[in-house]
Write a protein that binds this DNA or RNA. Sequence first.
DNA 1: CCAATCATGGATGGTTAATATCCACGATTC
DNA 2: GAATCGTGGATATTAACCATCCATGATTGG
Lengths: 172, 172
Amino acid sequence: MKLGDGVEQAIHVTGFLAALPGGAVMSAAALAEFHGVSTSYLLKHLQALSGAGVLETVPGPQGGYRLARAPERISLLDIVLAVEGPEPAFRCKEIRQRGPGAQTVSAALLRNPCQINAAMLRAEQAWRAELRRVTIADIQGEVAAMDDGTIAARGCAFIEQHGRGLNRKDER
Amino acid sequence: MKLGDGVEQAIHVTGFLAALPGGAVMSAAALAEFHGVSTSYLLKHLQALSGAGVLETVPGPQGGYRLARAPERISLLDIVLAVEGPEPAFRCKEIRQRGPGAQTVSAALLRNPCQINAAMLRAEQAWRAELRRVTIADIQGEVAAMDDGTIAARGCAFIEQHGRGLNRKDER
DNA sequence: CCAATCATGGATGGTTAATATCCACGATTC
DNA sequence: GAATCGTGGATATTAACCATCCATGATTGG
């Protein structure tokens, strides 16, 4: 089992946007450079987040992304589902109705859902519940308390620096 | 996020072995044919399960696999970890110490673990706890109650049928 | 003791999903 | 109206997983 890299990037960026003051926006290119990740790839996840209503976008010059609602109302689950999609990790292939073993029990058993599938889904529900409990405000709050607002200040300074010429092609 | 097919096969097979009477064993080839899955592929997971101490193997003619301990003491987590490996789904890439944003906060922040990583790991702990709670006896018990022991009987008959010539090459 | 049976473990293609990139287009602001 | 920015699709590239095969060693039955 593996979770894509995009999830980590998306959470970091969302947490960072939460640290910015007021209605400040930051362009996709600036966000990518500030976090040291690929612009093109981050872009895909930013669009997923705005499509899911987590972020909102400001077009035009000096445009960019910002939070679509208060950080207290954005959970880690919102971000994970936006980036990874809503499908559960365990997909039941209905093995029980394959092979010679299936013929004997088809009548009584198949009316009920697969117990294995049910148990796996229950576990995933517990996982999601835990992610739903943690908000961007939670993790951003802890970070802000530790570095005393430095990140926000550095982010604003970074935006200033890049008033022009940030939409250049990816370098690597 | 996605869970491999091997997990489902492994759980089904383990549950089936739990339904067999006494110390009965079943060969890898018979198990695969009975469940309608590829022998070669199932073999890999059977080996993982025996390596993890979930199943035990009886070599030689009329040999095969059986449970290494009571079904009550085999959890779904045991099987999932044996097949998928022990690594967590979320691997922190330490994005916070990359890019221009990292320089300003290196001192104070990096002493503490990444809050995002901690939250994701906590969620995965909840997932594992739920899987640990469910045993092979639980799911096998529900199945057995429904079909009234038919699966066990059919399994034994299937073993009888295949006294010889089951180790032929994969067909498909 | 010999041969059939079976598990072991490594090696090897094929297939799918995730990663990363690029480009043409439309919207917005200065 | 021109520069800036997001949108969305198309496209390589890479890694993970799926599936298979083969050579080997261990064990049992005759």
